[in-house]
């Protein structure tokens, strides 16, 4: 039957013909041994195809794919953190460039971050900077967005579940995180670094100081506290988040 094309045969083999076509093709096959041979030949084409790639199908999934798909929640949060920040914080222009010239800060060795007249942080034996009593009280009680000697720009929960606060004093900015009851300094940057920018520690485009941004990237941000949650955390004395 010359009117049965190879296309029709392969479609029939694939079950892709209408009932009517199917009837016609099967009738033709029954009537023509020659057509039957064509069908038998075409039906062989695929027989080894699936087995030829079976090994790939059953092979262990490479780690690079698993890693790509199992990208941790934190890493995804990081990509959107700056948009979260912009929702929480309103830009607050500050002109403290001059102040940063007056007060100096030495990172490493003796730390004299004079937020409120005395050293705000003390270096522990291991070099870890920890907020002194007054600074710790201030860090724990100050709401973000104020204009006092200590200004909080952001409160957040990091990937490890620790509360962190991004702060500014007249001469310094940094990130302090509550760890074992102490506000430990994760990152401290000097005020002069970004003097001249629109906001002191926030760049003109609204992104934070690179050192603080890097710290946030490293720690991961699970949640940025809005004003309401921040107020609740202050009221609750920054009880553990988990």
């Amino acid at each position: 039957m010359s009117n049965i094309t190879d296309e029709m045969i392969t479609a029939w083999l694939d079950g892709e013909v209408s009932p009517k076509e199917r009837q016609a093709i099967e009738g033709a096959i029954a009537a023509s041994p020659q057509l039957g041979m064509r069908v038998a030949r075409l039906s062989r084409a695929d027989r080894m195809l699936a087995p030829a790639y079976a090994e790939t199908l059953s092979a262990p999934i490479p780690k690079r794919f698993e890693d790509l798909l199992a990208e941790p929640k934190a890493a995804i949060a990081r990509t959107s953190i700056w948009s979260q920040l912009s929702q929480v914080l309103s830009p607050r222009p500050m002109a403290i460039a001059a102040a940063s010239m007056v007060f100096g800060i030495a990172i490493g060795g003796l730390v004299l971050s004079r937020a409120a007249g005395g050293p705000a942080f003390e270096a522990m034996a291991d070099g870890q900077l920890v907020a002194n009593h007054q600074m710790a009280m201030n860090l724990a009680s100050t709401q973000s967005g104020g204009e006092g000697a200590l200004r909080i720009r952001l409160s957040l929960v990091d990937d490890a579940g620790q509360y962190c606060r991004q702060f500014e004093t007249a001469s310094a900015a940094g990130l302090a995180c509550l760890d074992g009851g102490s506000w430990k300094v994760d990152t401290l940057t000097s005020g002069s670094r970004s003097a001249g920018a629109d906001g002191l520690y926030v760049m003109a485009d609204g992104t934070p100081d690179p050192a603080i941004a890097a710290a946030l990237q490293r720690r991961g941000v699970r949640e940025v506290l809005d004003r309401e949650h921040e107020a609740a955390a202050i009221a609750a004395g920054w009880k553990a988040t988990k």
Partner: peptide, 16 residues
Amino acid sequence: VMSRLARARNKLLQLM
């Protein structure tokens, strides 16, 4: 799809 399949299968058979 139909015509490519038929052509591909025929070529494959010729190679085999």
